[in-house]
């Protein structure tokens, strides 16, 4: 029953969010700030995680497929497809759900408990639209870039394994990452990332917007935002994969 209530409350909040802003000027002032805060500020973590995962994937794949029957390029191919299909979209979004989701939920939640949202409402401003719309749109705009960037950096991670170790040769790796390349996989990943970006930003905003109580409750809202958006990401990952790859 509570789940149904929350779903309805979420839908009503989204209805408030996706209306025409009171002042477009204010929206366009907030939008670049959110792009910087949610998108560009996530680049360091995307780079660090992608480069390590790319390298580890290459090493693990090579060590677990030591078979003379398998072609030498298979390690590069598996690394590339894993990065393109799952890691850079789904796993990266799960990580970003932690970083960006908790950021959004705690920011909006703190504004709620310190009556800043009430102050916006009292002025006659649609607070949901003013606070949440720039966050959702900025994150949706930035997410495909983060995902594609993560793919590229992940592949560089694998390349570095070839360069600085004797586990795999650079030539084999480069051949593998180019072999039987399916551009559709990138499209599929980008579509997934757009859906996940909406889930992360909107679910986190929902939990922040309806936070009440004190600092402890903002923490709870933040945790709920991360947990629930992660579950939704996994569910929609299954759904989209079935729709687009099956």
């Amino acid at each position: 029953m509570n789940y149904l209530y929350q779903t309805g409350q979420y839908a009503m909040l989204m209805h408030k969010v996706f209306t025409k802003p009171d002042r477009w000027k204010m929206f366009w002032r907030q939008f670049p700030k959110e792009v910087e805060k949610l998108g560009l500020a996530s680049l360091p973590i995307v780079i660090i995680i992608s480069i390590f995962i790319g390298a580890i994937l290459t090493i693990q794949t090579k060590l677990n497929t030591e078979n003379p029957l398998l072609p030498t390029y298979s390690t590069g191919l598996v690394t590339r497809d894993t990065l393109l299909l799952e890691f850079s979209s789904t796993i990266m979004c799960l990580i970003l759900a932690g970083k960006v989701g908790s950021n959004i939920a705690s920011e909006i939640g703190t504004m709620r408990i310190t009556e800043q949202i009430d102050a916006i409402e009292i002025m006659g401003v649609n607070s949901a639209n003013y606070l949440i719309l720039p966050k959702i749109t900025a994150f949706i705009v930035m997410m495909p870039f983060l995902v594609i960037f993560s793919m590229a950096i992940g592949l560089v991670g694998g390349y570095l394994v070839g360069m600085f170790s004797d586990i795999i040769t650079v030539a084999d790796y480069l051949l593998g990452i180019q072999y039987a390349f399916v551009p559709y996989y990138i499209f599929y990943s980008v579509v997934k990332s757009l859906v996940f970006a909406f889930i992360i930003s909107s679910v986190a905003s929902y939990y922040g917007y309806f936070a009440y109580g004190g600092a402890l409750d903002v923490g709870k809202a933040s945790t709920n935002a991360v947990v629930n958006s992660s579950i939704l990401i996994l569910f929609f990952n299954l759904l989209i994969t079935n729709l687009m790859l099956n």
């Binding site: 009556e115 800043q116 009430d118 102050a119 002025m123 006659g124 649609n126």
Partner: peptide
């Protein structure tokens, strides 16, 4: 209409509620 009316309203909150 409520939003329109609220533009005629000012409010001083207990904790000031200034935007951080």
């Amino acid at each position: 209409e409520i939003r329109k009316l609220r533009r005629e309203v000012g409010m001083l909150f207990q904790g000031s509620a200034l935007f951080d």
